[in-house]
Design a binder for these strands. Structure first.
Length: 817
RNA sequence: GCCGAAGUGGCGGAACCGGUAGACGCGACGGACUCAAAAUCCGUUGGCCUUCGGGCCGUGGGGGUUCGAUUCCCUCCUUCGGCACCA
């Protein structure tokens, strides 16, 4: 294939840019711009599917550079995590060696595509100079009571042999390996993100530059619900509390359902005659996986405890049941059962013959419990609820709650669906948790000056055993207690890698600081992030954690703002031609290395960006590559072939006339279009505009002065998309300094104006004629011209004209009869 | 079930705030160059009809608002995404 010499051009300019330190972050920015793409897991040779993210960012960076901004555009590696450990088990290579090798390769791939990173600020999370600060942050959270240890039934993936955070369980399956997740009763470390639930929810309002979609996902995930906590007395002066959003149905409670995990159940039935059955039930239900338990098709089951509590307002006796449709981790783990007005309770009551008591009547209807086929969950009028009878139920909620409050039997309460963030992992390749377990003194933090707690490199058996691999490394585990100096043990678990990514963006501001996590002035200079780019899949995970850490650091006084990024853009996924997501494991990914070898980086860049709007999913195809390659070849050929004829002098006569003026108008339109499109993430249409302009340019005589001007501007407009070729053209035109040091072109509003404008003439909304009329012609004249057109006369002949609509400089619509 | 996004030629996709639907690209067809092919260049390309002037239909289906709707409203269908026994 005969094409332009992209190989020479690309390597030449990549080298040159490095020599001139084009991407270096300025130390004293005047107009700062912090652009960040979500950093990747370094999987080696990156594939085309992963590149969309970086390319979108690179286009913006290069344009901002030319607009005179001072940029921070860094890159790093989410380098801890399971794949390295799995590679170690499979191939016997140490996770660190494997990871560092992959980082090197991934980095080369990014450089091959000409992405504009300042590599001096590279951050690698698996190195001690980074994870030391994970540990430091852990200690800060611990001091504040935001890192705590608790025994809880937690998500456990039997295949990965580790616990998982709620955010890592998708539909009951492990996000990583799709294995059904089970529950284990373990003592683990948690970050108290629930303490920030309200702020995380409220502050979404501030995030104008975030996609609505992401904010909605976060709102759902946080899941605020407002209701009442009600106390139900037990026999001997004790009580149990439940959370409800339907206090208006309190008089309809006929049973209580208690989650099997609740320790209180065991005590309740202790020594009672139904103890055996209850314990048996608890045992089996805990063995069910999350999917089994939450399957909506499954019949709800439970067991009667034989015990009762008292409805605090009606005084009725209420049966206590254990049922596994109740979640222990939400509210109090106990639910009041109102079969008549809650579908789940209805099904449960039907199955076990528990009474159904109607307390809300729909308007104009009368519910009879025996005839009900489903619960009535809508609002209505209260009944059987003396003294609240005949109150509308919505109003009743407030009255019932007030009555409970007056008598000390209940209180207003807000619950959130979001759970505390479980961060312990029983794996090797992660940040060691900087805590020490002493039998005498309890659990104590490692002193700050003793950080980092280094991950041992030797003597580790990586094979998963369900216990952390670190627990079998004596040199790591054995430690003296910081308090009593006796023998103690380190915490054997490592941190979730989402801890790393919750603050990496801050480290870029001051990546080599050995004294502090970052210096406050450096953060003040660069943060918050002006534009963040990444996939939507992180909406309920990383993007919540990252906001949470920002708020914690704000509260600690380390940063002066409480939202980490002002604008967020979600790029779409790249699929293969069959519509499957590109991934290495599926084997359908286009590796970047061979592609660049065959087609060149610029062609790859144009293809990826022209394929469709950056925000939507797109399919990678060979056909797209051909179009992009042709486009670049045509540009190059045009310049080479016309080079001799291009006038040397840059000045043109002002103002140009005729054809020249037409070309110049088109040029100014292109500047406007490309500029606005990049700002609005319309990279595909920006490239289309460049193609359109090229189509004009090839028709023009190269010896006219406007031709030279056109090419100079065109090179600059092309530069963000195809930086190597654009730089080459720029220099072919005789420029000495880099195109990226040249200013971004500006358009002349005057030049956009046309002398004559095509006006569309419709009759009854249908296109019937086109006119070419002088711009700024008075309405009357336009009307006249339209009506006197021969084709329009054909349609209006013999008919009465009811109305003529004139849209200035656009169209005329003649309405007849 | 609830919430959200989307549905446009053979294909990827354009169309500002309601004003020429299909920009740009791919593919296809015809032509030029060539011994030939590739590459390149020129032309045509939503469907149907046509006396070659033009006409009718057409943006998932149906309805509505409007002089005019891919765009706004109602309703239904399909696809994708989020939440889903959260009390």
């Amino acid at each position: 294939m005969e094409g332009y010499p992209f190989k020479e051009i690309e390597s030449k300019w990549q080298k040159r840019w490095e020599e001139m330190r084009l991407y270096q972050t300025p130390s004293n920015p005047k107009r700062k711009f912090y652009l960040l793409e979500m950093y990747p897991y370094p999987s080696g040779d990156l594939h085309m599917g992963q590149f969309k993210n970086y390319l979108i960012g690179d286009v913006i960076t290069r344009k901002k550079m030319m607009e005179g901004y001072d940029l921070l555009h860094p890159m790093g590696w989410d380098a801890f995590g399971l794949p390295a450990e799995n590679a170690a088990i499979k191939h016997g290579i140490h996770p660190e060696e494997w990871t560092l090798k992959n980082i090197l390769q991934s980095k080369q791939t990014l450089q091959l595509m000409g992405i504009s990173y300042d590599w001096d600020r590279e951050v690698t999370t698996c190195l001690p100079d980074y994870y030391k600060w994970n540990q430091w942050l852990f200690l800060k959270l611990h001091e504040k009571g935001l890192a705590y240890r608790a025994k809880a039934y937690v998500n456990w993936c039997p295949k990965c042999k580790t616990v998982l955070a709620n955010e890592q369980v998708k539909e009951g399956l492990c996000e990583r390996c799709d294995t059904p997740v089970t529950k284990r009763d373990l003592e683990q470390w948690f970050f108290k993100i629930t303490a920030y639930a309200e702020r995380l929810l409220q502050d979404l309002e501030k995030l104008d530059g975030w996609p609505e979609r992401v904010k909605t996902i976060q709102r759902n995930w946080i899941g605020k619900s407002t209701g009442t906590e009600v106390d139900f007395p037990l026999d001997k002066g004790e009580k149990i509390s439940v959370f409800t959003t339907r206090s208006d149905t309190l008089y309809g409670v006929t049973f209580m359902a208690i989650a099997p995990e609740t320790s209180f159940v065991k005590e309740l039935v202790k020594g009672k005659n139904r103890e055996k059955e209850v314990l048996q039930y608890i045992e089996t239900s805990l063995h069910h996986t999350e999917i089994e338990r939450t399957s909506t098709t499954r019949e709800k089951d439970g067991v009667f405890t034989g015990e009762y509590c008292i409805n605090p307002l009606s005084g009725e006796k209420v049966q206590l049941w254990v049922a596994d449709y109740v979640l222990s981790s939400y509210g109090t783990g106990i639910v009041m059962g109102v079969p008549a007005h809650d579908q789940r309770d209805f099904e449960f009551a039907k199955r076990y013959g528990i009474p159904i008591k109607v307390v809300i009547q729909p308007v104009g209807e009368r519910l009879v419990p025996e005839e009900m086929e489903e619960a009535y969950v809508e609002p209505g009028v209260m009944t059987n609820s003396n003294p609240f009878n005949d109150l509308p139920s919505e109003e009743g909620k407030r009255w019932v709650t007030m009555k409970l409050m007056e008598n000390g039997l209940g209180r207003r309460k807000v619950n959130y669906r979001i759970r505390d963030w479980l961060i312990s992992r029983q794996r090797y390749w992660g940040t060691p948790i900087p805590m020490i377990h002493c039998e005498q003194c309890g659990i104590l933090p490692v002193a700050e000056q003793n950080l980092p707690v280094l991950l041992p490199k030797e003597g580790v058996d990586f094979r998963p055993k369900g216990r952390s691999p670190l627990s079998s490394v004596p040199s790591f585990m054995e430690v003296t207690c910081p308090s009593c100096q006796g023998r103690a043990e380190r915490d054997p678990d490592t941190m979730d890698t989402f801890v790393d990514s919750s603050w990496y963006h801050l480290r870029y501001a001051d990546p080599k600081n050995e004294e502090e996590i970052f210096s406050k002035p450096s953060v003040k200079t660069w943060l918050p992030i002006d534009q963040y780019i990444g996939g939507v899949e992180h909406a309920a995970g990383h993007l919540i954690y990252f906001r949470f850490f920002t708020k914690v650091l704000y509260d600690l006084g380390w940063i002066p703002y409480d939202e980490p990024c002002l604008r967020l853009f979600n790029h779409g996924m790249v699929m293969d031609k069959y519509g499957d997501v590109m991934s290495k494991s599926r084997g359908n990914a286009f590796p970047v290395g061979p592609f660049v070898e065959e087609w060149g980086a610029d062609t790859g860049r144009i293809t990826m960006l022209f394929i469709g709007p950056p925000g939507s999913d797109s399919r990678w195809s060979e056909e797209g590559v051909i179009g992009s390659s042709r486009f670049l070849n045509r540009i190059y050929r045009l310049v080479i072939e016309s080079l001799e004829k291009i006038p040397q002098k840059k000045k043109r006569e002002n103002p140009p006339k005729g054809k020249d003026r037409n070309l110049l108008r088109k040029l100014n339109k292109t500047i406007k279009k490309v500029t606005e499109d990049i700002d609005n993430f319309g990279h595909n249409t920006a490239i289309a505009a460049l193609m359109e302009f090229l189509n004009e340019l090839v028709k023009v005589d190269p010896s006219v002065p406007v031709f030279r001007e056109s090419l100079e501007v065109f090179s600059r407009l092309l530069a963000p998309f195809a930086p190597h070729l654009a730089e080459e053209l720029w220099h072919l035109l005789g420029e000495e300094i880099s195109v990226f040091r040249a200013p971004w072109p500006e358009y002349d509003e005057e030049m956009l104006k046309e002398k004559e404008i095509p006006i569309v003439v419709q009759v009854n909304g249908k296109l019937r004629a086109k006119l070419l009329l002088p711009s700024e012609l008075e309405e009357e004249k336009v009307k006249e011209a339209a009506l006197s057109h021969k084709n329009i006369k054909r349609y209006t002949k013999g008919k009465s004209i009811k109305r003529v609509v004139v849209v200035p400089e656009k169209l005329v619509n003649v309405v007849v009869e």
